[in-house]
Design a protein around this nucleic acid. Structure first.
Lengths: 158, 158
DNA sequence: ATTAATCCTAGCTAATAAGTAGGAATTGAA
DNA sequence: TTCAATTCCTACTTATTAGCTAGGATTAAT
């Protein structure tokens, strides 16, 4: 029950992109180096985000990526679903109209799975990227002022 | 981001056990055959549930398993955590007091992961097994009366 | 032309999930 | 006292997935 690096790195990358793409397109290489993600791997994540219609690409020298929608209209759910395919921990035949499994008549766990799925979807769909970018900028401001660089040396996995 | 068969089968098994262990201990073999789970695999799941203090075992002929606590005091969260170890989709160093990673100063995704984790935990902790067993019994009653055995033939994976 | 970029597909490696398997220990009943 | 039914413990196996790496084609600005 872990979110894969696709979702974890990808969300970070997209927030990074949102912050730096206001003036010009951002190449993969610069996101990758800021975020400490393999360029080659990030390429694939960007391809998924593009396919999902969240970002646009500009090929050739001077190119890179920009957002394809307004930042306030992209939810964390959009991003994670683009990258993970399906973020629901349990897929159950009984969820789809007209379908069901041999047990679904007497099955109670399906109610449990449904509630879990719903709560996750609701949570990720109500966080929009603009909130995160705003938050991120304000954190960076604070850090500059207070010069409090008490950084832990543990590597970030997320 | 999938719940493993440990959690899925295990919860079904425990609900089954709760329903059938009122008069006498239930052996693994009978749970396994009712639920269509490999006996040998279920053995291991039961061991985990026992270690977590949710069930008790009675060895030897005529033995089996019974609940170790009142059914109303066992939450779905207890069961899933016993089987999956940790049901939070993202583990982040910044969640633990006094810890953090190199990025946690300027990290915003941690807020996202925290919200997802919280919503899952809250959801599974507020469903108690007695609700599910009650529900299950009532479904079985209904099925008996209405004789509506329109069973889909798809196998259940959960 | 050269260089900086995206695009596309394939392959590789390590970890994890999902079970199988063998046999020891315990207990009730014939 | 033997047998059968059960849990217990540990190791092994197999299939799938995650997490990359790699090669080279294509596009466009200078």
């Amino acid at each position: 029950m872990k979110l894969s690096t696709k979702g974890r790195y990808g969300l970070r990358a997209l927030i990074d992109l949102a912050q730096y793409s206001e003036v010009e397109p951002v190449p993969i290489s610069s996101i990758a180096s800021r975020q400490g993600i393999s360029e080659r791997y990030l390429e694939q994540l960007m391809a998924m985000l593009k396919k999902a219609g969240l970002i646009q690409s500009i090929r050739g020298a001077g190119g890179g990526y920009i957002l394809a929608k307004e930042i306030k209209d992209i939810s964390v759910g959009d991003v994670l679903r683009a990258l993970e395919g399906n973020i629901e921990p349990v897929e159950c035949a009984a969820f789809h109209e007209g379908e069901g499994c041999e047990a679904s008549g007497g099955c109670v766990t399906k109610y449990v799975w449904q509630k879990i799925n719903d709560s996750i979807n609701q949570t990720v769909d109500e966080i929009m990227l603009d909130q995160l970018v705003k938050e991120s900028k304000s954190i960076m401001e604070d850090n500059k002022k207070s010069n409090s660089n008490i950084m832990a040396h543990k590597k970030c996995n997320n």
